[in-house]
């Protein structure tokens, strides 16, 4: 049900964009107003979210304790998994952000029939699917710089050459285009077919997947099948980033779909689970060094507590205690 409603929502947005592209008076709205509004929402929203996280206190030192913690000198500690230095933390964060270390674990719970017993096994398909999707997405986003920057940066062209390595057809088939769609379909089927994942999947989980699929598919269709005028696309893009927007005569209905879905994604991102793009940097279980035995972690939240120790209490009531004949620690 969640899957269906989110699918329908994306279809409705696609339909609206498709229809809007046909009406010339709507083009200004779709070409100029919508991208600006979406970008503003993205930037403001993301800054708001990150600043809000930054001002939250971290009451405890809670790094995940996998790997041997640093303790006595003759016990070998794992300096990345259980980092106790700044360098170790940096490496751990890099591995987490670039290679998704925390997905590469035995985190798949299964009940085996013989027994029955609960088994944790590897979750490498999820890891691989996630990695394939995110890296393709990064390459694709960077590749789009060719529309926004003039002259086109060298590294974009170099990246394109690697991406189109197989030299299949014209325009060249880009590997990331295939990979991103396959990866997204895999991540979607995982939510639909695994009953455990399906049970915890929400409307927003499906919405993100369908939204990204819609963007990828509309882009692929535009690149390989229903051609659009790239010169007009670049003029529009440069017009937008230089704050002197122009509305090209016609680019093609599919372009409006793509642009509208991308705007949707940009505006929606800071307020959805997709903001993990910023959040991953602030995950306390990963970015805090596991040095709780060496350094005292003080909760910045703590207000000064008025402490009244036993010694003070004893001094205060010294005479009365003595008079009552009770034992005293200090005479």
């Amino acid at each position: 049900m969640n899957a269906l409603t989110s699918f329908i929502l994306i279809l409705v947005v696609t339909g609206l964009a498709f229809a809007g592209g046909e009406i010339s008076s709507c083009r200004v709205l779709l070409d100029v107003v919508l991208p600006y509004a979406a970008m503003a929402a993205f930037l403001v929203g993301l800054v708001y979210r990150v600043l809000k996280w930054a001002s939250s206190p971290v009451p405890f030192n809670i790094p995940t304790t996998c790997g041997q913690q640093k303790s006595l000198s003759w016990i070998k500690s794992s300096w990345i998994e259980s980092a106790h230095t700044k360098l170790g933390v940096a490496v751990r964060m890099a591995i987490e952000i670039l290679l998704f270390r925390s997905l590469f674990r035995n985190s798949r719970a299964q009940i085996r029939q013989e027994g029955p017993r609960l088994l944790y096994s590897e979750n490498k398909w999820l890891w691989l699917g996630a990695l394939a999707f995110h890296w393709s997405m990064l390459v694709i986003v960077l590749r789009h710089l060719r529309f926004f920057v003039e002259p086109v940066p060298r590294f974009i062209l170099a990246m394109d050459a690697v991406d189109g390595f197989f030299q299949i057809s014209a325009p060249q088939l880009l590997v990331t285009d295939v990979v991103i769609i396959v990866a997204l379909l895999f991540l979607l089927q995982r939510r639909l077919t695994d009953p455990k994942v399906r049970y915890i999947s929400l409307f927003s989980d499906y919405l993100a997947l369908f939204l990204l699929l819609g963007i990828a598919i509309s882009g692929v269709l535009m690149r390989y099948f229903f051609k659009v005028d790239l010169e007009a696309v670049k003029q529009l893009a440069i017009g937008l980033v230089t704050f002197s927007p122009i509305v090209p005569a016609s680019i093609g209905a599919l372009f409006f779909v793509h642009l509208t879905l991308v705007s949707f994604l940009l505006a929606y991102l800071p307020f959805s689970k997709l903001v993990h793009m910023g959040g991953i940097f602030l995950s306390p279980t990963r970015n805090l060094p596991n040095d709780s035995r060496m350094v005292r972690h003080v909760n910045p939240w703590n207000y000064p507590v008025k402490v009244h120790t036993y010694q003070e209490w004893e001094e205060e009531f010294h005479d009365k205690i003595k008079a009552a004949g009770l034992p005293l620690e200090r005479e």
């Binding site: 800054v47 920057v149 230089t242 122009i246 910023g278």
Partner: peptide
């Protein structure tokens, strides 16, 4: 991050790129 995201804008504005 904000600098990277807005890279096209300041690049084009500095370079005087027009549409």
């Amino acid at each position: 991050f904000l600098g990277l995201v807005t890279y096209p804008a300041w690049h084009d504005l500095v370079a005087g790129t027009t549409a």
